[in-house]
Write a protein that binds this DNA or RNA. Structure first.
Lengths: 237, 237
DNA sequence: TAGATTGTTAATCGATTAACAATC
DNA sequence: TAGATTGTTAATCGATTAACAATC
């Protein structure tokens, strides 16, 4: 009888990585639905109702919420107020998150001025660019600073988040600079993968890739619609 | 013996919905990697190499590519040129896709000027807004038109794609207008779900939701990093 | 031939959905 | 009590990974 501390150990690490990704992406949708309910003065929302906002069945919603330490009331639904504040906590929407943004082109400008961010407590506290002709300009009420000042500023203010909105070619170098400045989370809008140390969290937001995938579906979509019409034509009576 | 044309028919509709979503989102990444190889003059790329760009193992890449009608060469890899042009075809990057954009705020402006789109043959051929103070202005070389002109223009030019970059409150109405203009694919950047007929394809690009999910991971991330450091401190020797 | 890498099958993993007793 | 809706288990579905014979 060999004592085995080998892969044979099949303990299900149920919350090994916490909430599963797909569920995590639905929670903000539930959160918004709850805010809506509160605004409308509706005190409870059912799982089916929540499911409609996210495009999933009620069973999925109940599963998602079951990994929270939050409970609904049988026959009634989920308490909008308590669920909303619980989700706020869980999603970290109550924590201030300070960010710097590098690359003040059109996209950078748009993000710097996007009102949705401050609602979720993401504050872009400094803008950087390496183009001398725009350094010194202001966006909103913020001056654009030269990239050379990034490391020092990020370190001094213990910035957590860096947003990259430069062209793909420059993205890796900007990432390196951010990391040198102690930034731990990078939100990358450049269409490329970044190489980073293991303790850095990178979230890619790649519009070009999204468009390429969408493009396929557009082509496909036309065919489907066409076939549908064809079938209707052919159908007797 | 009953002839059954019922749900009992378990034919595996392998390509029922064509390429699985997750694979579809990786293909553009492979495509970009192939372009890079071509540029570098490297004629073949292996599945492991492709996997690195997408952050998946080589086996996954081979699986993904196996649903294309494209084949690699054992012991060598995939031909960069032939694979690139095949992916271009499959993803519909060769087809011209004409789009209109409604909501010329900062984000709309950024998208209208985004160079990545034209590379994939998405052409934004008209910009609309309902704010009289910006109607008539130009962005790039395009005039901003009043929304009232959308239906007519979309119908006349058989526009396929509509891009929504208005605030959440206005998004549904804009979507309705687009649909009335015969638009079949909607790329929605407003943080809300749209209600549309079944033959309309909606792709949501919801930055606020992404941020909320990211926010959770930021909070989580700090804990993980902290624990790691803790463990290192505690470790003997 | 020897070495590398494919295409594919089978095993694993994880997420979605259906169903229903428990509960308000 | 009757009706509605939860929380959870079991069944299903689909995607990822491992492994390896076939092939260049």
């Amino acid at each position: 009888m060999t004592r085995s501390i080998l892969p044979t150990d099949r303990t299900k690490h149920k919350n090994h990585r916490g909430i599963p990704q797909p569920a995590l992406r639905r929670l903000p949708v539930y959160y918004r639905r709850m805010l809506q309910a509160i605004e409308e003065g509706v005190p409870f929302v059912s799982s089916d109702e929540l499911g409609k906002s996210a495009g999933v069945p009620g069973a999925q919603v109940r599963k998602d919420i079951s990994c929270l330490s939050q409970h609904g009331r049988s026959g009634v639904g989920y308490d909008a107020r308590s669920m909303a504040s619980h989700l706020e906590e869980l999603l970290g929407l109550v924590n201030d998150k300070e960010a710097v943004l590098v690359g003040v082109g059109n996209l950078g400008r748009a993000l710097a001025l996007y009102p949705g961010f401050s609602r979720y407590k993401l504050q872009i506290i400094a803008l950087f660019d390496n183009n001398p002709s725009i350094v010194g300009q202001t966006v909103g009420d913020q001056q654009i600073l030269p990239v050379e000042k990034l490391i020092n500023l990020a370190q001094r203010l213990h910035i957590q988040v860096g947003i990259i909105t430069v062209p793909a070619e420059a993205a890796q170098e900007v990432a390196n600079t951010m990391i040198a400045g102690g930034i731990k989370v990078i939100w990358n809008f450049a269409p490329c993968r970044l190489t980073v140390p293991g303790d850095i969290l990178v979230k890619n937001e790649d519009l070009a890739t999204e468009l390429a995938a969408l493009s396929h579906r557009i082509a496909k979509h036309k065919v489907v619609v066409f076939n549908k019409a064809e079938r209707e034509d052919v159908r007797p009576k």
